[in-house]
């Protein structure tokens, strides 16, 4: 049980980091579109960055991950 919880925490940690970085990059893709478009070999255009960055689903996923990341460590903690 504890091992599964630890694994879940790890997955959430890394997913949260990935989503945060993704949100950051797409945000920069709106404001610094020239640089981001060049770095991404033209894949991440301003329009695409905008659509991804403002997609409600991504933000909901981010908030859920953040909430799990904050509260999961309290689950299964033994009381002294």
């Amino acid at each position: 049980m504890m091992n599964r919880l630890r694994l879940a925490r790890k997955i959430i940690q890394w997913l949260l980091l990935a989503v945060a970085v993704f949100l950051l990059i797409t945000g920069l893709g709106i404001t610094y579109y020239g640089a981001v478009e060049t770095i991404s070999f033209g894949l991440l255009t301003k329009n695409l960055s905008h659509q991804i960055h403002t997609a409600p689903g991504l933000w909901i996923f981010f908030v859920v991950l953040l909430a799990l990341h904050i509260f999961l460590p309290f689950i299964g903690r033994k009381k002294n």
């Binding site: 980091l17 970085v21 950051l24 920069l28």
Partner: peptide, 14 residues
């Protein structure tokens, strides 16, 4: 390392 990269990106964004 990843956190540092994130912080640098945040600084650029700011």
């Amino acid at each position: 390392i990843l956190s540092s990269v994130l912080l640098v990106l945040l600084a650029i964004g700011g």
